[in-house]
């Protein structure tokens, strides 16, 4: 049996899982504050737009969103299998394509800022 190409999907999954672990809790907390009506100053249009206008800011936002998307897509694929859905190729294709489309869209939106 030939060696698997799974590292192509697993490496970004592992990187994304690390990014989610470090960044996602605080991002969701910021979103939660906004949902409670207490919009943090950093989420005002001026601040966030200023951050995203910067090259480093763009890179951080894109990195976090793209890697987190990929990691979630990959884990969701495995979860589907664990729940008994055996159409793995179809599910994997759909989820990975969705993650790539989401990342491309993010890149496009950030490019416009």
């Amino acid at each position: 049996m030939a060696k698997s190409h799974k590292p192509v999907v697993w490496f970004p999954f592992a990187a994304g899982g690390t990014v989610i672990a470090f960044c996602m809790p605080v991002i969701v907390v910021l979103g939660l504050l906004a949902a409670l009506g207490q919009v943090p100053p950093g989420l005002s249009y001026e601040s966030l737009h200023g951050f995203a206008a910067h090259g480093t800011g763009k890179l951080i936002l894109f990195g976090v969103i793209a890697l987190s998307l990929w990691s979630s897509a990959h884990r969701l694929r495995c979860t589907c299998y664990d729940f008994g859905l055996r159409a793995d190729t179809l599910i994997a294709t759909m989820l990975y394509v969705a993650a790539i489309v989401g990342s491309a869209a993010t890149a496009m939106f950030l490019f416009r800022i």
Binding site: M1, A2, K3, S4, K6, W10, C78, D82
Partner: peptide
């Protein structure tokens, strides 16, 4: 060993 370990049936089946 990696010819067995790094296959679809090997470590990549582990979640």
């Amino acid at each position: 060993r990696m010819e067995v370990v790094a296959t679809r049936e090997g470590v990549w089946e582990c979640t």
